Simulated assay, not measured.
Amino acid sequence: MSIWLSIFYPPPPSAFVAAMSAIICASLAYTGLSEVRGRHLQYSKFWNTGRPSDDARRARISSRAGMLLLYTPALASAAASLGVLAGERSLLLGLALLLHFFKRDFEVLFIHQYSGNMMLDSAIPISLSYFLNTVCMIYAQYLTQGVPEPAVDLKYAGVVLFLVGIVGNFYHHCLLSKLREKGDKRYKIPKGGLFGLVICPHYLFEIIGFIGVSLISQTVYAVSFTTGTVFYLMGRSYATRRWYLSKFQDFPKEVKALIPYIY
């Protein structure tokens, strides 16, 4: 316990934040397990593999509009936090979250290519989840104001990891976007970067980025969210590799899901 308190802030006095810390970790881990079991989030390219067609009565929006709906409320909350948070650590956290969601919106507008639509009733709860998690992380940091800093200061190491993660994630998203020419809806095996070692290097770098966010924050909530994210992306990368194996007979078996040579 003394080691924990030397690295992280003590648990917050807010019962809401404490409960959300447990809920978000458990729910993300469960979602990752669901991915492994074949129950995919409904904006995935393989969520409806082997399922009947969607009910035509369900409201749909373009994938680009849907992805903007996912990220923009969280982006707005991160931007608003800069007017609330005080202190170097808190401002670094707000800037990291702002940059994270700004990059996502930028990729939606200028990098990603789309081949379908998104169900509105699926996009709304996912958007609310991103928004709520961002607000909770900011609020948990706000509650540390006036609390003594952890004995071990990891915020600068966190900044380095966050930047490595966001640059690596962006680079591999760019590689994915170049797989298909405009109008081409066929999927291909990704190449370049770390794609020769793992099928989801963009998830690997996203994990690195969120570990960086946890070190910048050093709060229980940030650690819980990152832990849940790790479990979720492990499940999603496993499902992604399984999907490629089912679609491409020439998929290289030595390419792992997430961690080179290991997983």
Rank of each mutant, 00 (worst) to 15 (best):
Y238G: 09
P73W: 02
G209F: 04
G196D: 03
L85N: 01
F170K: 02
L41Q: 12
A239V: 08
W47N: 14
A15T: 10
S224G: 05
V159W: 06
V147E: 15
T72G: 07
A26Q: 09
A78T: 11
E149F: 15
K256V: 07
L128V: 09
S127V: 10
A18T: 08
L109M: 11
S90I: 07
Y187G: 04
R186L: 10
C200G: 00
I23H: 09
A26Y: 10
W4K: 14
Y171V: 13
P10N: 05
Y203L: 02
Q145R: 15
T226C: 15
I189N: 03
A96E: 03
A80H: 09
A86I: 11
V198T: 00
A76T: 09
D153R: 13
G83D: 07
T49R: 13
L154Q: 06
E254K: 10
A56Y: 11
P12G: 11
A257M: 04
L28C: 15
Y238H: 13
M67Q: 08
K191M: 14
N169Y: 02
T134E: 06
P150D: 03
V17L: 12
V230C: 09
M118E: 01
T49C: 08
V84L: 12
A56I: 14
A239E: 06
S237N: 03
G183S: 12
G165V: 03
S90G: 15
L161Q: 00
I199Q: 02
V17D: 04
S63P: 06
R242E: 07
Y261L: 13
G209V: 05
I211W: 01
L233N: 01
R64L: 07
G146N: 07
S129D: 08
C174Q: 09
Y203S: 05
F46D: 08
A19I: 12
E254A: 10
R37V: 05
A74G: 05
N133W: 02
L92S: 02
A19T: 11
F101W: 06
F110L: 14
V223H: 06
Y156M: 11
K247H: 13
A65F: 07
V160F: 08
L204P: 00
N133S: 11
E206P: 04
A239Y: 08
I207E: 01
H100T: 07
T226V: 14
S115G: 14
G66D: 00
L132V: 14
Y238Q: 11
H40P: 07
S90W: 06
S34Y: 08
R37M: 13
I211R: 00
I61L: 12
S127Q: 09
S34M: 08
I199N: 00
S14R: 00
N117S: 13
G212Q: 05
I189S: 03
R241A: 01
G235I: 06
M67A: 14
R104F: 05
K103T: 04
V152R: 13
Q141M: 14
G196T: 04
P201R: 00
Y221I: 04
G168S: 09
P150V: 03
M234Y: 15
